[in-house]
Design a protein around this nucleic acid. Structure first.
Lengths: 334, 334
DNA sequence: CTGTTAGCGCCTTCAT
DNA sequence: ATGAAGGCGCTAACAG
């Protein structure tokens, strides 16, 4: 419980080495001149006592920690994990410790923001912010470096790392239109606005406008099982008719594919499917899922790298937009 | 960088509210009696100044933080992410902040241990420890609560959460033996010993001993692509002959399946495949992958829950072994 | 009910 | 090259 932990302190090391704590501090941090002999004395004492400096005390004294906050929605989608992995690896390289704060929704995001602020992190990476302007004000007030992954609706003067899925999405749809597709179904989660998903719907709408395409929006939870069941029933009642389904993530696309396959239909002959955000699943599924490819691990690592730079120097280019490639695989004709 | 951040402190709040800092501290922590009117004064001051207490100072003063360390290997396998998600959710529920420490190998693990110790976490969860006994000694010395997920080779007197894949693995193999299987191939990563994988090989060996089965160990990196390529070539040169392949993770099994499918073979008619650790991939792949099911999210959340209990009370039952179910799907005959 | 004071563990001038 | 002393922001007795 709240019983004092018996950690060895810098005082004990100083005593053991018969020096002052200032000297110990110097050898720990490699600052100031210390006689090699006394330094060795100190080092031996540290080893003997198994002394590990407290980042708390150090942080308090220097008003500088090595903590970095990562704020992101709690659902653990594979692609978010890829981003996280990229962030965490870069954190380690630069000697920062990532503190993770997850949130469920907008109100919860506010709580997460307070937590991360209380933790006295040096900077934070926010995944596709659901943050309000008042949240953001808290950051800017204390000039805390922030990198945002995903659309920056608030146009904060901070780092921005985004992925331009939209261009490729448009290109793909236009190809399909030229190919003569008649109906496009877009699977949209009515509740959530994650997935760097902003602009998907608009992009599709804009492509379709001047064509004879019928665009249908299917509001459905972004869950494999929910979507699989939905389409299993849909295709049972009404056989597919060469339409195109667009899902936000490849695994959701796989749900649509599998529902049809399990009923004996074939993709892309009977209907086409594409998932926007690509993960390894695109390669692993059969037929392989057409999707828009970008290395999400790289996205995370670039974001974190940008933050570390903002921490140590003035950064001029605070924006990094990933371009993407639509990869035609086996679930679409174009 | 190391420029003092200009955070509002408890002193400034006290000044603004015309009270002493002790009073502010009291309303913040809800401890001690404070006149409602002055409390409101304080709250207003806090709001006005946007004051957020420093966990550093608080931690230093109380020698108590709300940080929990999570130590795990860096590769971001899906199933590890499931475990992490479970841990993080429980962390949030109990008001702890998870600090993530990843490591690459044994030496790196030592570094991670020092980092986590320096961070003055209240407790730690270690995933399938590659930790040495000297690492562990550091924990026990300061009696830091530790929960280990996976095999506890060091038999530490700490929390242990493990998954008994072995029993089901044996059961499955015995079924296959009764079914008349002749050759079993076990895919084994020669370098790594993660995946709560300890005992898999021994289990298989013990099952096979008294039978006429030929057991083959294939040492191969646990990478989808590597395995896919390997089997693409293998099956090209030598057609499958009703043998059984056992991979540690379902997605690796999918690599074996896909390699054959893409060459025109069929599973499980031409050969059988099973992946031990199950993820959503087992359901999503076609044919669906036979695997040993356990809710890994639950594993993570149980582990973290156990830790939080160890933090607040004496825990007697410090062990939780998950039982598992072999789920026969479509890639095996039994 | 509220204020005063002494730390928590460490860094950092400032002397020596 | 080393030591002494003040301070980082907060909590927790202890007084009043």
């Amino acid at each position: 419980m709240a019983d004092k932990k018996n950690r060895t302190t810098i005082y004990q090391v100083a005593k053991e080495a018969n020096v002052s704590l200032a000297t110990v501090s110097r050898v720990i941090n490699g600052k100031g001149n210390v006689n090699e002999e006394t330094a060795k004395l100190v080092r031996d004492a540290i080893d003997k006592l198994g002394y590990i400096p407290s980042v708390l005390a150090r942080g308090l004294a220097t008003s500088y920690t090595t903590n970095i906050g990562i704020v992101l929605p709690s659902p653990n989608y594979v692609y978010i994990n890829n981003i996280m992995a990229g962030m965490m690896d870069v954190c380690k390289i630069y000697g920062y410790s990532p503190l993770i704060f997850t949130f469920e929704d907008v109100e919860d995001a506010a709580r997460a923001v307070d937590s991360v602020l209380a933790s006295r992190v040096e900077g934070i990476v926010v995944f596709n912010s659901q943050l309000t302007s008042s949240d953001v004000a808290k950051f800017t007030k204390i000039s805390l470096p922030v990198v945002i992954i995903g659309k920056d609706k608030l146009s904060i003067k901070n780092g921005l790392v985004d992925v331009d899925y939209v261009s490729e999405l448009k290109r793909f749809i236009n190809e399909e239109i030229k190919g003569g597709i008649k109906d496009i179904y877009f699977l949209k989660d009515p509740k959530k606005d994650w997935h760097m998903t902003n602009g998907y719907e608009e992009a599709i709408v804009s492509c379709v406008e001047k064509s004879k395409i019928n665009l249908h929006i299917i509001e459905i939870a972004d869950s494999y099982n929910v979507i699989y069941d939905y389409f299993k029933e849909k295709f049972s009642n009404q056989k597919p008719n060469h339409e195109l389904y667009i899902a936000t993530r490849d695994s959701l696309g796989t749900a649509v594919v599998n529902a049809g396959l399990d009923l004996g239909y074939s993709v892309p002959m009977d209907y086409e499917v594409m998932g926007i955000i690509s993960t390894k699943n695109s390669i692993m599924s059969r037929p392989q899922m057409s999707s828009i490819n970008v290395d999400l691990y790289e996205v995370g690592s670039i974001a974190m790298r940008m933050l570390t730079k903002m921490l140590t120097s003035i950064v001029n280019k605070k924006e990094f937009i990933f371009t993407t490639n639509y990869i035609k695989k086996e679930t679409t004709k174009f």
